[in-house]
Amino acid sequence: MVRGQVYPAPSISVSPSVVVALGGNATISCKSERYQHMTFLLVKGTVSPENVMEKQAEKYEVTFSVSNARSLDGGIYWCCFVSALQEWSHFSVKAYIKIRVQVHLKPSIAVRPKELVPLGESATIHCKDENNRRAKYSLIKEEALDIIQEETGGRKGATFTIDNVTQLNVGIYWCDYKPDSGSLYSHFSERVYLNVTDHGFPKPSIKMVLQEEYPSGVNVTILCEGPENNLTFFLHKSMDLRASQETEPGSNRARFLVQIINLEDAGNYTCQYHKSGNPFVWSVPSNPAQLVVRESIPIIIWANVAAGCLLLVLLVLLLTYIFYRKRRKGKWTLCGCSTAKVTKQPVAVNLEPVAEAVPDEVSYAVLRHCSVKIKPTADQEGISEPCVYASVAK
């Protein structure tokens, strides 16, 4: 196979990682960067018929599966490809696959700094067995070809340091451990992300659609703009991630719709982006844009509540007044007598003059046929009689 090695070596990767749980699965990928339709060979250990798997590529890449992994599946893997003219590529680098029996509880894991690491600075990843046992810890990185680091830790666990961080260090990490007292391993920890900021990326811009104070309960549109298309933007408020959004098709801008719920939504907003090919390398943050929120909506709500209470009180008073008037509906004054309704009864008319008569003059007598107390009868017609004046000539 050494003869005729005219093509560059393909790349090899293992997903999710070179550390595979017993009974788990993994995928080995071999890829040519320039040549299509090649025949790829995956070799485990030394070249022999039983250690070689072969597959034709539809384009640039082929994948080989490791299913229901056994201990025998562990070992060193590498690949190459050959053309139809029997011209071979150089050998890829080696991938070291390890099969582990996992029985212990997974460790905790944390990365510092928690957010973004500027290129060239240091980062640490800390792993710890919750049972505080002395153990050997392994730091594992997604698609890395070998274990990144191994450290022995005591009750406080183990700390892995990555100095002078470069783009080669970015990615997804996790860890496991093996207690000193045995040969069995723990389950994998949770995943953590090591992201970096690259000051070589142009700084994005950010702006509010309308520069004004916003009341609570409305939506605000925030625009983030980058140097090129096909970017993914992240919107932060005071370093806390609020949302992520890809740029609009054929555009270098992303729109964020922020709903203002209370005064806590006010503050400084910034945005960052990464390119589609590398989600772990970010730009520096944009200059901050301030979102100002006023309390107009709560004031209006309290004013409406107060007005509603006042209207309710007035309505109760009005209903009370109408009810009181209905109770007194039948009572009205007739000729100065307080009575409801009168009946037609014989009335005694007193024709005596009120004062001493004067000869040759006309005297008047007022006929008041309202009795002091008159009880209504069942057949009353409800028609009041007017006062009658009679002139008496002597």
Rank of each mutant, 00 (worst) to 15 (best):
D180G: 08
N230R: 09
C224L: 08
W174C: 12
T221V: 04
P227Q: 02
L231A: 05
G226K: 07
I206A: 10
S183P: 04
I206D: 02
H187V: 07
M208F: 10
V209S: 08
Y214T: 01
P204Y: 03
P227N: 12
D176H: 15
T221Q: 15
S183W: 05
S205T: 14
L194Q: 15
I206Q: 00
L210V: 04
G182N: 15
Y185E: 08
N230L: 01
Y185V: 11
G217L: 05
N195F: 11
Y173H: 15
S181V: 12
Y193N: 07
G217I: 02
S183Y: 13
K207W: 03
Q211F: 03
S205R: 14
Y214R: 01
P202K: 03
P227C: 02
K178T: 14
P227A: 12
G200L: 11
L194I: 09
L231Q: 02
S183M: 06
H199W: 03
T197W: 10
I222H: 06
E212I: 09
G182D: 15
T232A: 05
I222Q: 11
N195P: 00
E225D: 09
I172Y: 00
S189Y: 06
S181E: 10
G200P: 02
Y185D: 11
V209H: 07
E225V: 04
L184H: 13
